[in-house]
Amino acid sequence: MTEAGYNFAYLDEATKRMIRRAILKAVAIPGHQIPFGAREMPLPYGWGTGGIQVTASILGPTDVLKVIDQGADDTTNAVSIRRFFTRVAGIATTDATGEASIIQTRHRIPEKPLTENQILVYQVPQPEPLFRLEPHRAETRRLHALADYGLMHVRLYEDIARLGHIAKAYDYPVMVNERYLMSPSPIPAFDNPKMHQMAALQLFGAGREKRIYAVPPYTPVRSLDFEDHPFRPIRAPQACAICGSKTSYLDELVTDDAGGRAFICSDTDYCQERQAAPKAAAE
């Protein structure tokens, strides 16, 4: 049942149309930031309003929605956003990655590979990959227009000169379609390779900064690096204490005061599927 008095998915149709136009432009120019007239939403700026507006604009009554934060369906903000859409759209929701048609995410890409029938919507706090190097938007617009990314390369060079390694652990800058430098949102660098040639459409919404961008299916996405210092995805070297995975991204949990640690899958659905699988195989 939807909340009485609100349009399907909260936004009025004119606003949805405006956002869809922005999405189309974004898809036409992979990695390029499209300004859009973001609306005030019932959740605060910085808490996913961009992702919510993108999802609200593409959601239909037969869609199945999954919402995750830090890879988990159960974190408080994911719960809050899922509740919001249940209230204003009444659509079906799921925890299972494979069953969702739209997945809205904050800070992770699901471990399970996505398909052409799925759309991944990322929540983006800061769409401008150069913002720490050049805070003025008027200038970064020019740099993108000229494909002048010297600033970023210099930053990576400096990291290696100083630390021996590139220091970016998350929100690691990528080159999309060999043309635009893009911020993948604060996903761990470990997740970057999943973006390359992904079968699903990837949409990025930044509500506070009022930008939308996109990576269409099967688009090359390359993490910046040097030939002799290639990009290497980093994860904790342990295995998941619950399902045993040695390849998924792990959360580190402090279990006691004596330095005790446990490592478990960040992607809760993935972990659960793996736990259920050996039982299924045994049956």
């Binding site: 990314y149 010297g150 390369h153 210099v154 060079y157 040097f226």
Partner: peptide
């Protein structure tokens, strides 16, 4: 750094080997 200053134009023109 001095190295970064000199290397920047090389990188802007596509140099990729640190």
């Amino acid at each position: 750094s001095a190295g970064g200053n000199v290397g920047e134009r090389l990188m802007a023109l596509g140099a990729r080997h640190y």
